[in-house]
Amino acid sequence: MAEPVRVRLSGLKKAFGPKKVLDGLDLTIEKGTSIVILGRSGMGKSVLLKHMVGLLSPDAGKVEIDGEDLWKSPSGKRNNLRSRFGMAFQEGALFDSMNVGENIAFPLRRLTKLKPADIKKRVAECLELVHLPGIESKLPSELSGGMRRRVGFARAIAHQPEILLFDEPTTGLDPIMTDALVRVIDELKRRLDPTMVTITHDLKVAFSIADRVALLNNGRIVADLPPREFESSRDPLVAAFVRGDSQLDPDAVD
């Protein structure tokens, strides 16, 4: 049986000044799917992710969440749609006026009806998951870049949202931490069956967490395949990416 569509992007266009970042992009993500988006640096992966929660509005095209047009909905409804998401930002984007505990509690306070004691428990739980137990009272400015990213990850999953967006969750983490985070993602998948969109440059991570792997190039999704097929694809762009071969990608040296 086909799962219902959670996120549908159609004909998405976005330009910053003269620079076209998204150029008629189509992408459909079904409930419970984990999709990994690959693409060269600066290709617009983060921009794509921001369109899904409505942090950026497209110049043309449509963003639909559970069948609702995000930008045709009144702002109250739009916030309701947003509350189904949990997003981990590329640079963490922790609130630096709050300590780590308050950061992770933020979505719990605003989007759930949990009691203070339960919030505290859930915050501790999430910090355990990212191997940073007991740092609730630290300020974001006291953390390393990798720690901040992990706290951002913990904040994104805290309220157990139905749709998770991870922008390079493992970049800059050591191999052991990367493995730990992949395990957390696997565990989430098994327990909660969320819809998941992950951006990463780490192919090992990509192939181990993805149901589908998509490649963004020049403003469009140029490949969207199950991991096995993606790995063995003969498409020159895909093959260049998988092998990390700058000779194979016609645009690589520009």
Binding site: K50, S75, N79, M87, F89, F95, R110, L111
Partner: peptide, 21 residues
């Protein structure tokens, strides 16, 4: 200064993403 630095470090985006005006 405070709100400006929240803007450039995507903290305002984070607020919006958590359904906060």
């Amino acid at each position: 200064a405070e709100i400006g630095s929240m803007r450039v470090t995507e903290q305002i985006d984070a607020l919006v993403a958590f359904a906060t005006d």
